[in-house]
Nucleic acid binder design. Structure first.
Lengths: 171, 171
DNA sequence: GGCATATATGATATGGAATAACATGACAAG
DNA sequence: CTTGTCATGTTATTCCATATCATATATGCC
């Protein structure tokens, strides 16, 4: 479930999620980062938004909107769908959170600040989600798009499969 | 949804890649192809399944499950969600149809028979969907995955933006 | 052909995702 | 204090998806 127990692996340039790492600092710096960027850009990281981001930073997996909603209710926030969706909209719009289309669920961004077209690897067993950049993939697809006269605004790149942990355990 | 109200036009009539083409033969060959493969592989292209495939071949855009369901009802088939979903499951499983995760909707495969990890371009204005192969994108992502020890089973590659038609019309 | 088995379909019910529409609260600027 | 703006709360609805069970139909075997 959690990433705490995963074996250490070689650095691969920014992939987060299947690696052992200092998870507490991961949450802290994530929140700090968001606060910094919000105050810099005049965005308002309100209590609900902050709470949702915190929840997502605590997991390196995707959470569905209704899972988020349940926790919001427990924490005394509003308990109706729009409460969660509005917070998520804000976080996604400003790059703090990504939506995993394959799962209709959300993960905290692992490369805060970096301008990115992210790509994801989703483990279908443990539901862990790792993020990596896909500038290259966008470039390749971009060529096809250019040839067709299609103007890309956003890309969704998600790979589904088995993470290293679950591969090991299966043996 | 919106795809019901958008009239089929002779001149934009099927955008397989946003190109003009003989759309009637497009449907015919699509069906013929499916029949051939099914009889070759011992699959059963039953009336519902065939009808759903035909519907999707007639549009080069994604149809939601409930839009499909509406038309099935009109044609005298069962009118409950599982009827549509079961047919779609069969068609997707056997590569005749793809699901567009971004839209929670379905398109007929434009490269029948080819073993592919498809990639899609989705116009957010007219909802047209073009399919292209993404072997390259998979290769690039595959490198990152291999480095991480992640075993890719399936990829979702979808670009959202504006198709050539809508770009022109906007001017 | 006639029967047993597997598969496909039909219908009911339910749950989860997402948004529309409307009302309220907090707060800053004039 | 009023107005405008933004965030939040609430209700209701739409759309996507699946579990379940009953019935029908095709297929393979005798």
């Amino acid at each position: 479930m959690t990433s705490e127990t995963r074996p250490m692996q070689a650095d691969d340039g920014g992939l987060v999620g299947f690696h052992k790492h200092d998870h507490k600092s991961c949450v802290e710096t994530g929140l700090k980062n968001a606060e910094a960027r919000c105050s810099a850009e005049g965005l308002r990281l309100t209590p609900v938004r902050r709470k949702v981001l915190e929840m997502l930073l605590q997991e390196h997996r995707a959470l569905g909107a209704y899972a988020i909603l349940d926790r919001l209710r427990e924490e005394g926030f509003g308990s109706q769908p729009p409460v969660a969706y509005r917070a998520l909209d804000f976080l996604v719009e400003n790059g703090f959170v990504h939506k995993i289309e394959r799962l209709n669920a959300f993960v905290a961004c692992a490369h805060p600040g970096a301008s990115h077209s992210p790509a994801f690897m989703i483990c279908r067993k443990c539901e862990a989600v790792a993020e990596t950049h896909s500038a290259t993939a966008k470039g390749v697809l971009g060529a096809a798009a250019k040839a067709a006269g299609f103007e890309i605004e956003r890309t969704v790149v998600e790979a589904e499969g088995i993470c290293p942990d679950c591969t090991e355990k299966a043996q």
